[in-house]
Every structure is written in structure tokens, then in C-alpha cells.
């Protein structure tokens, strides 16, 4: 029954577009006039949020990964607890705590700041596991070869281990990055007027929810598609030193 009902609605929607030129024109108008605000939301917030959070997140992730593999118990535990908390709670809850919760204890953050903080912490935790695994996947002999030519721990890490670990981490980190692009839509919930929130606002005004959310979805998709092209290039570049046999 339910299914029939939905089909009926879908048919009505399509019919109304194709049999009613005025309706079609109105939709095209809205699509056209909302495209720029959506794109603006993407350029002003979605993309900067993604880039800034990913950069901070990666640094945090590297530190966390190093803490996890260090021999200092305290560092290990701090890192472990951090990762466990972030991975064990929903991103939406984390953002809410930062933006709506912290004011209770006297810390008030701008929406954009809270979003950056939340997403960075999130990337930091997830990417740290990727980086840790990548570092551990580099054969012990590489550390030893670095040691035997006199390198310190940090020199070995910087010159020998991390460059090789980055190659291994590109595919999983790209996943993290692409997820982040999409997760920034959650910032709408803490009042950042990024792309998805704009779509909500426009749709609340003209009731064309399907059209606006589809439009926003399309822009996310294009962004992610472009990113996957970048990923391909990066992988290719880093693969120059491994046998393709």
C-alpha cells in the first residue's frame, strides 16, 4: 500500500514537471537562482572547513600516531583515550558539545571555530590510526639503516619513514578526506551557513526540498569526484619508486 502511495507521488511529481510548463519553468528558475548561493556556501565554508580541518587534523594525527608508537606509557595512553573518545561518539554529538555545550562552562565559540575544532579533532583521531598503521608497515630494516648512518629518531622519521608511510597512507587518507567533505554538512547544525544549510534555508522558503537537496548533493558529488582525480595523481607520483611489475 505504502509503496503504491509513494509511486503515485513520484509520478505526480514527474507529471507536474513535464505536463505543466509553468511548473517546469519555476523549477528551472529556482535551480538557477539557488545555484550561486549554494556554490558560494561551498566556496566560503565547505571547502575552507575541509581544507583547514584536514591540515590541522593531519598534524594532530601524526602527533597522535607518534604518541601511540612511542615508548612513553603516558603518551600512549593519552593518545589511546583521545582516539577512543572521538571514534566512540557521533560527530554530531561532538559538534553539539563544542558549540552548544561549552558555553555552559563559559567557553563560547563562533560557529566556524567550533566546526574547525570539531572536524580537526575528528580527522586527527581517524587519520592517526591510518598513519600509525602506515608507519608500522615500514620494515624495521629501514629504521636500522637510518640508525646506522647516524640519523636521530626525528631525522629517521622525517627523511626515511614518513615519506614511505605517506605513500602507503594516500588511499586511506583520501577516504578520510572525502568523508570530511561530506561531514562538513553537519556544520549546518551548529549554524555555519555552509552549502547544506543554504539549501535548507532556500528550501524552507520555497518548499522545493527535493530540488535543493539534490542540487547540494550534486555539488558534493562533483567535489568528491575532483578529489578522487587528485588522489589518482598523487598515487601515481608516489609510485615512481616502486616496481610496477
Amino acid at each position: 500500500m505504502m509503496k503504491f502511495h509513494r509511486n503515485g507521488l513520484a509520478k505526480m511529481y514527474l507529471n507536474s514537471i513535464f505536463t505543466n510548463p509553468e511548473r517546469l519553468e519555476r523549477l528551472l528558475d529556482i535551480a538557477q537562482s539557488s545555484f550561486l548561493p549554494l556554490l558560494e556556501g561551498a566556496i566560503q565554508y565547505t571547502i575552507p572547513l575541509t581544507l583547514i580541518s584536514f591540515t590541522i587534523g593531519l598534524m594532530l594525527a601524526t602527533l597522535t600516531a607518534l604518541a601511540r608508537i612511542s615508548t612513553v606509557k603516558l603518551f600512549q595512553n593519552i593518545a589511546r583515550i583521545y582516539v577512543s573518545i572521538i571514534r566512540g561518539t557521533p560527530l554530531l554529538v561532538q559538534l553539539s558539545i563544542l558549540f552548544y555545550g561549552l558555553p555552559t562552562v563559559g567557553i563560547t565559540l563562533e560557529p566556524f571555530t567550533a566546526a574547525i575544532l570539531g572536524f580537526s579533532l575528528n580527522v586527527g583521531a581517524y587519520a592517526s590510526e591510518v598513519i600509525r598503521a602506515a608507519i608500522l608497515s615500514i620494515p624495521k630494516g629501514q629504521w636500522e639503516a637510518a640508525n646506522t648512518i647516524g640519523m636521530s629518531y626525528s631525522q629517521s622519521l622525517k627523511r626515511i619513514i614518513l615519506p614511505q608511510a605517506s605513500r602507503v597512507s594516500i588511499p586511506p587518507l583520501s577516504n578520510t578526506f572525502i568523508s570530511l567533505v561530506k561531514d562538513t554538512s553537519l556544520a549546518s547544525f551548529i549554524l555555519v551557513t555552509e552549502m547544506f544549510r543554504r539549501a535548507q534555508e532556500i528550501a524552507a522558503f520555497n518548499y522545493e526540498f527535493l530540488l535543493l537537496y539534490a542540487q547540494a548533493g550534486l555539488i558534493y558529488w562533483v567535489l568528491c569526484f575532483l578529489l578522487s582525480l587528485v588522489q589518482g595523481r598523487l598515487e601515481h607520483r608516489f609510485d615512481r619508486y616502486v616496481s610496477r611489475a
Partner: peptide, 28 residues
């Protein structure tokens, strides 16, 4: 002292020349 390993342990992301230059440049 310097060690030569059974399984070479060259740095795979560096050319032969870069492998040899690495110690003098980074360490010395």
C-alpha cells in the same frame, strides 16, 4: 662504524645517488 645488511635495506624512495648522499647531507 657502519653496517652493511644482508637484505641491503636501501631507502626505496631514493635513487642510488640519494641513498649515498643521505648520511652526509642529513647527518654530517
Amino acid at each position: 662504524s657502519a653496517m652493511v645488511f644482508q637484505h641491503y635495506n636501501l631507502f626505496p624512495h631514493m635513487t642510488a645517488l640519494e641513498n649515498v648522499m643521505e648520511g652526509p647531507v642529513t647527518v654530517q
